[in-house]
Simulated assay, not measured.
Amino acid sequence: MKNSVLLAPLTLALALVACTGPQAPQPPAGPTPAKASVNGYVVNADQSVNLNVSALDSQDTVLTSGTISDITVTDAALAQGQLGLQAAPAVTASKCGDITSVSGDFRAGILLDASGSMADNDPEKKRAEAAKLFIERLSGTAAAAVTSFSGYDATSPYTELTVHQDFTTDKGALKAAVDEAAVAGGGTPLWEATQELVQFVSTKTGNRVGVVLTDGAANGTDNLAPAIAAAKAAGMRLFMIGLGSPDDLDTADMQQAAQQTGGTYALANDAAALNTAFGGVFNATQGAGCIKLVVQPAPIAGQILSGKVNFKVNGAALSAPFSVQY
């Protein structure tokens, strides 16, 4: 009799489980984002693309972790440069990394192009406005430094890098330095200055990045490989921003620098787009995941792939536009 009494509740519990059927899958644990951004990209050797994506809450705080799922691409189109020839390619998307962040204090070295062409490509100094918005988002112990390159007035011991403000958390000092750096009147020693930026930033520890803006072709490419090697050896990511027409930029070299160091490349077609480019770089440095796109037929150099990537982070549906220059 006692055994029958003990078995009755167990039998009832099993019956209830059987009636409820399979349990619905639960969304991954973690904060719920409100929106997403595509921060930049790199083009791989096989012409696939890794989009760098972030998720943000309603206060524009970047999530430092999150699970990406349910990825699709809509409105995909290929354009052939300025010819505007459109095609609807077949694009498959997959996850190449959930959202993660780099530990340690954030240290960002901002490197602005001060070559003479900036007077034409950015006469209103939108690059200063964009860099200041980047600085304004720093918080806590996060610090930045402001530098430029023009081929003149380098700061010893450097030969191409001008340091306008050493690392500090003082946003007022950093913004004043940006105004000082946003000049035009020299050449484009891009890779020489980038290598020296790496030397400058790598004296710090933590989450170290270089944010490099240029509007033209470098004076030469002899220092491209050494700049990349120095950044890789230091564990420092390079985030490259090109301003203007892709025809005037060393797009492939800049993408190579970003791809090999774990950073991103972003193209700002005009000065007004710099806020978006710098905002994407900031998001990427705080927390980001990876979505891989494979396009058939494979795009060729000069083509631009655009569309919208849709995905979920911690179960919340998000979407963001993207544009990739091959």
Rank of each mutant, 00 (worst) to 15 (best):
T11W: 11
T11G: 10
L12C: 08
A13C: 12
L16N: 01
L16H: 01
V17Y: 03
V17T: 05
A18V: 12
T20V: 15
G21C: 02
P28D: 04
A29W: 07
A29F: 09
P31W: 06
P31C: 06
P33G: 03
K35P: 06
A36D: 11
S37F: 13
V38P: 04
N39R: 07
N39E: 06
G40Y: 11
Y41W: 14
V42S: 05
A45K: 13
A45H: 13
A45R: 15
D46M: 00
D46R: 01
Q47D: 09
Q47G: 04
S48M: 09
S48Y: 14
S48W: 15
N52L: 12
V53H: 00
V53N: 00
V53C: 01
S54D: 05
A55I: 04
A55K: 01
D57F: 04
V62F: 00
L63A: 07
L63C: 07
T64R: 12
S65Q: 10
G66W: 00
T67H: 09
I68C: 04
I68K: 03
I68Y: 01
I71H: 02
I71W: 01
T72R: 05
V73D: 01
V73N: 02
A76L: 04
A79H: 10
Q80F: 15
G81A: 05
Q82D: 14
L83P: 01
L83K: 12
L83W: 03
G84N: 01
G84M: 04
G84W: 02
Q86N: 13
A87Q: 14
A87P: 00
A87T: 13
A88Y: 06
A88G: 08
A88V: 14
P89M: 02
A90Y: 07
A90H: 10
T92D: 08
T92A: 08
T92N: 07
S94M: 05
S94V: 08
K95R: 13
K95F: 00
C96A: 15
C96F: 13
C96R: 13
G97S: 07
G97K: 10
D98E: 04
D98G: 05
I99H: 01
T100P: 04
T100V: 15
T100M: 05
T100W: 01
V102F: 11
S103V: 08
G104Y: 07
G104F: 09
A108W: 09
G109W: 14
G109L: 11
I110F: 07
L111W: 00
L111Y: 02
D113Q: 08
A114I: 08
A114F: 09
S115C: 14
S115D: 08
G116M: 09
G116S: 15
A119G: 13
A119M: 12
A119P: 08
N121P: 10
N121F: 15
D122W: 09
P123T: 06
E124G: 13
K125Y: 13
R127D: 13
R127Q: 14
R127G: 15
A128H: 11
